[in-house]
Design a protein around this nucleic acid. Structure first.
Lengths: 129, 129
DNA sequence: CTGAACCTTCCAGCGCGGGGGAGGGTCAAG
DNA sequence: CTTGACCCTCCCCCGCGCTGGAAGGTTCAG
């Protein structure tokens, strides 16, 4: 299949597919005699894999890591497990950070009171922040 | 005070201060006869304001908005209130997104099982993702 | 024959918040 | 007199994940 068909089949764009190839996420594929890229059906599988990784919040670099391991013939499962564990820790930290931030912002806002310009003093400062 | 002193006093760098001036967050300041920037003590106040805004997750553009309102002589309080309300909504959405993502990633990881290479098939896919 | 819809490469830019380093002036101490 | 610590402007670069556009080749329908 050609790049446009693959793009449509996987819900992405030809631009992105060329970018993925450049980034090492898709192997350089066979070219037809006219120079057009010619993809087999496994390209769809690989792109689905990439899409799922993205949806799990993995970076392209992390996904490429997994692909590289697999391409050396190893089973990347334990690596994926470790990656997802790290990702979970990250997410938990982000949630905790955001919850702390939420409390701070809520406090600042509630101290303000919507129509209380007196809380702004004459200096270069708004006491809300 | 000179730019390096101001940087040290506010826990930032001279580079960043020049960048803030360029971005309209710091007013172009008085220059000494040798061309060096010469800051008064209110620069520290303004930088603290900027730092607090950053800590609340506001973008430089949002902080500049507030500063611009204040610099036209108005009290930016109700604007700040609105800004923080929007920011709260954003944070809540981010937290919800992350909690959904956390559930997804945790499920993927727990399906994997740390030492279960059988979950990797021979195709270009790891069933964990 | 012409036009549209594909494809190719290469180069540029976004948004965000700066950082690196070149190439040069200035100033005080030793 | 020199050394070192500052300061100045200028322009380019980072990560991240693409996206847009120019300039050209190919293929197919009408």
């Amino acid at each position: 299949m050609r790049i446009g068909e693959l793009a449509e089949a996987t819900g992405t764009t030809a631009k992105t597919l060329r970018f993925y190839e450049e980034a090492g996420l898709l192997p350089p594929t066979h070219r037809a005699s006219n120079g057009y890229r010619d993809y087999g059906p496994d390209a769809v599988t690989r792109l689905d894999f990439i899409r799922r990784g993205r949806a799990a919040g993995l970076t392209l670099a992390q996904i490429r890591e997994v692909i590289d391991i697999r391409d050396t013939g190893q089973t990347p499962c334990s690596h994926v497990h470790a990656l997802l564990t790290i990702r979970l820790t990250d997410i938990d930290r982000q949630i905790a950070d955001l919850q702390g931030l939420r409390a701070t912002v809520a406090r600042l806002r509630d101290e303000a009171g919507q129509a209380n310009p007196a809380a702004c003093d004459a200096e270069d400062v708004c006491r809300y922040l």
